[in-house]
Design a protein around this nucleic acid. Structure first.
Lengths: 216, 216
DNA sequence: CGTCTCCTTGAAAGCGTTCAATTACAGTGG
DNA sequence: CCACTGTAATTGAACGCTTTCAAGGAGACG
């Protein structure tokens, strides 16, 4: 029971399932490490540095407000880097959405794009979505985001995280996400396969919705 | 008429009122420059670098979406620095909300916090606000933000920008901002002085509202 | 004094939330 | 193998907030 109520601060339990917590990343160069679902890699306020490379799984960058609300700032997908200079501090908590495989890279990687820049981009992208009006356009936008990431697959897209993550990310509630997905299904835009997997049937229709140009 | 419709891309006119546009900041070390209201300092995609210091006025960092919507990512207040390394690119358009006095600092200022980090912080802060539910709590939060910035004054706070900026920043509409301010007045939380200046009478009451703990 | 912009207020409609109940599914132990 | 249990996902119905469209005021400036 990691997230009894997703709008409540993280339970202490998750601490014990966080193998990376306060370890020296330099100690294990290049070796793949397994990080359990819901584990915390870094807490907001932790200091760097080092460079992690996400091989498999999904991470989320989140910010908890004092009154327990959670805001998902963005997700990290396989092949993405988390590179923070020594002495710099994390401005978000980094958690594993799913079980992950992560490598600690050795070189300080001066050539890499820094985590600050990456996070800023993700935050602004999220902001542009959450800032726009209708929830339906946000969900449509997110499905298209996912589909761009799953190119080469069998045309289906899978999201390995619960509806609550999606809701916190898009600034809405789980029930509303369900309703939007159901609406897409009724309109013939998507074909649900499993609860966390679907096939996009009409990408253009979704794109139209994503831009708030409602198509009746 | 710079912003006939605030949800439309910037008119070309603003280009001509942007003295800093594509200038070499190193050319004028430390000298104060005047930047006109609604001028654009940098466009999204421009490359740095240099370091600006805002002496007077307010700047906004904005992102325009392809369908003309605008998202205000954050504001810059006097004494804040905009420092971007050479070769790095701006991820937001930086515009003057009011007439501004700005200095171009010489040293590359390695000790300064980079613009990426500053913008990330602002973006996440904005996201945390826009991501939470009620508009009334966002407006309350923003007034408290402003009041923390105007310490030492006569207890009044002024915002030199139109309601439209506030609305785009908080993810709502100008009419709603008006209604929220009117509500604050009716509840005795604030005392309006001018359209863009007011006095906070009950900071604790505002804080309660900002946390969505409604007080009847 | 007209015009323009900004701000304010009204009324109605729409959309998303909220609360509640139901279903589905995986894990566990009998 | 099957109930039991807890979590995740879905659907329904009513409420309430915010938007939308519209009109009216308040200054600034020519």
């Amino acid at each position: 029971m990691k997230f009894a109520d997703t709008r409540v601060t993280l339970s202490p339990l998750s601490l014990e399932t966080a193998p990376h917590r306060r370890q020296d990343p330099g100690a294990n160069l290049g070796t793949l490490q397994h990080v359990a679902k819901d584990a915390v890699l870094y807490w907001e306020g932790d200091s760097g540095g080092g460079c992690l490379r996400l091989h498999d799984g999904v991470l989320r960058a989140v910010r908890y407000t004092d009154d327990g609300a959670r805001q998902v700032v963005g997700f990290f997908w396989p092949t993405e880097l988390l590179h923070l200079g020594k002495g710099e501090t994390y401005h978000c908590t980094i958690e594993a959405v799913t079980d992950c495989q992560i490598a600690s890279l050795s070189g300080d990687g001066q050539s890499d794009v820094g985590l600050h820049e990456v996070l800023m981009d993700k935050a602004i992208a999220t902001l542009s979505v959450v800032g726009c009006k209708s929830v339906i356009s946000r969900v449509a936008w997110f499905l298209l985001e996912l589909s761009r990431r799953e190119n080469g697959a069998d045309g289906t897209i899978g999201f390995d995280f619960p509806r609550a993550d999606l809701a916190d990310y898009l600034g809405t509630r789980t029930e509303t996400v369900c309703r939007m997905l159901a609406q897409f299904r009724e309109r013939g835009l998507v074909e649900p396969l499993e609860p966390r997997r679907l096939r996009i049937l009409d990408a253009l229709g979704l794109a139209a919705l994503a831009h708030d140009r409602l198509v009746e």
